[in-house]
Amino acid sequence: MPISTGRSTKIYALTWRLPIIIWQFFFFVGPVLFMVAMSFFLVKNYRMTEAFEFINWYKMLTRGYFWDSYKYTILISMVSTVCAMGLAFPAAFALAFSASETTRRWAIFLLIIPFFTSYLVRTFSWFVILSEGGVVNAVLGHIGLGPYTMLNTHFGTLVGYMTLTLPLVLILQTVTMSNIDKTLIEAARNLGCKPLATIWQVIIPLSKTGLIIAGIFCFILSFGDFVAPFYLGGSQETTLPILILDTTKSGQQWPRAAVVAIMMMATLFAIAFTGIAIAYRKRKGA
């Protein structure tokens, strides 16, 4: 590659480099920084005035409902992550190790489809399916069970989270595990390693990075989603995204919503960085 010299070469380079810098500064960095600044603004008579006061931070962080919501959101997102990872693992295992190449390709192609279908419509569909008089209870009724209340419960929220996260987690797990060198597994088996022990001591350590990345994505998606807890969980417990929604849309308290948003981002960054650090840490002796 030639060394960049001369004016025209420089202009050429900048033509390709600058658009995204300018665009993202105006429409990505700008909004995020403004949101941080906004958390110090004041709201008087439903109008926001620019200021530098800590009142919003104080008001939000000293309220019990904020911390209740914070704890609940972290907890339910963790439960969601554990469920998604656990539910996906056997399927990803099967797709990675016992399915043929063609089957695996088709499976991954099918799993991409949900990303391009409206998550809202899928949630609404669950709402109808899971309701007291819905399809699931109708089927259960025929064998003399139910009806069960599934909407407006934690179960409902989790079904929503699974709808959102399971396809992605399953894709990431499948791709990660199918990249494992199969001869290593055969070697373990030949050396007398039991199937379950092979999973714990060979497959999981070898796919650690990919598994952690899948977990982080699942957590981020659940943590930031307002649709599942709102429509399927019936806002029984307020999660942080619902808090942002309520504070922005009905309360007109944008600065306080900004406080919640910044707390969410800080939490996500902390979790993502810790996860990535663990994922890429070299194993001892490896």
């Binding site: 995204i20 909004p31 930031g224 307002f226 900004a258 981002m265």
Partner: peptide, 23 residues
Amino acid sequence: YLALILLPPTIPLIIMALAMLAW
């Protein structure tokens, strides 16, 4: 530079929505 373009999808949409609305 690369983070500038790659970061937005990792931020929850509700947060982007609030930031964009305010800005």
